[in-house]
């Protein structure tokens, strides 16, 4: 079987010289697919994603993007390689306007960015309306849209989202998931960590259930939702 588009293969590591948080953990996503990492609190979900993005000190394993080993690259270099990351907290420039946030997302690009910006506004119409307002003035859900929009401005091949729906209302959450599916349809791979496991797995092509820094279950989203053990232990019955 050929390599998936992005794979973090048997990753073990932690922060600095501290103990390992990840133990031989594998996460991958194919082109245009959505991969979701779920699991209980403290299972290392976000850590696994940060490891893929190069924000962790790896002791074992490798990260490959399109078959190329990128384990040694810094997060900034990975951005240049077409990976975009939306952190969970402080993921917008609150004192900059919405439009400036998007421009900063495209900082590395030297070509005309107006086309991409139009696409982002098409995806999140409310942002176009508020493009002259500072991000700090927006609601939580709108700010998440700015964060995702900023990441999309690099025209990434992979979009990584750390709990994009944390702290937003259920209605906004559904809306966000719809948009994420839309983004995936445009050919961008999506890797995300989610607390709302059930809804996330519903849109997921691949699902990873993590427990204590290890892969516990790996399957398609639908299969995991159907798995009685996963349902009992992680989805509340």
């Amino acid at each position: 079987m050929s390599d998936p588009f992005l794979i973090g293969d048997s990753l073990s590591g932690g922060y600095g010289r501290g103990v390992d948080i990840l133990h031989s953990c594998t996460i991958s996503v194919n082109e245009g697919e959505i991969a979701v990492i779920v699991g209980p609190n403290g299972a290392g979900k976000s850590t696994a994603m940060k490891a893929v993005f190069g924000m962790l000190d790896l002791h074992e394993g490798s990260v490959r993007l399109g078959g190329e080993d990128i384990s040694h690259l810094s997060p900034q270099d990975r951005v240049a390689m077409g990976m975009a990351f939306v952190p969970q907290n402080s993921n917008t420039f609150t004192s900059l306007t919405v439009e400036e946030n998007l421009e900063m997302g495209a900082f590395l690009r030297r070509d005309d960015i107006s086309g991409t910006m139009a696409q982002v506004y098409e995806l999140f119409p409310v942002l176009q309306e508020k493009r002259r307002q500072t991000a700090g003035e927006l609601s939580g859900g709108q700010r998440q849209q700015v964060a995702v929009g900023r990441a999309l401005m690099t025209r990434p091949r992979v979009l990584m989202l750390d709990e994009p729906t944390a702290g937003v209302s259920p209605v906004v959450m559904d809306e966000l998931f719809d948009r994420i599916v839309e983004v995936a349809r445009s050919g961008i791979s999506i890797l995300m960590v989610e607390q709302n496991a059930r809804q996330a797995l519903e849109i997921a092509d691949r699902g990873y259930v993590m427990v204590q820094g290890r892969n516990a279950f790996t399957d398609t989203g639908a299969a995991l939702l159907a798995d009685p053990e996963v349902r009992r232990s992680f989805l509340g019955g």
């Binding site: 240049a80 420039f93 900059l96």
Partner: peptide, 22 residues
């Protein structure tokens, strides 16, 4: 200016500025 905006962005949120390639 692009550079000026990137300075404001850096001042606002250093980590995110790094993630944006500034």
């Amino acid at each position: 200016t692009r550079t000026g905006k990137s300075m404001r962005a850096f001042s606002d949120n250093e980590d995110l500025a790094l993630l944006s390639g500034i």
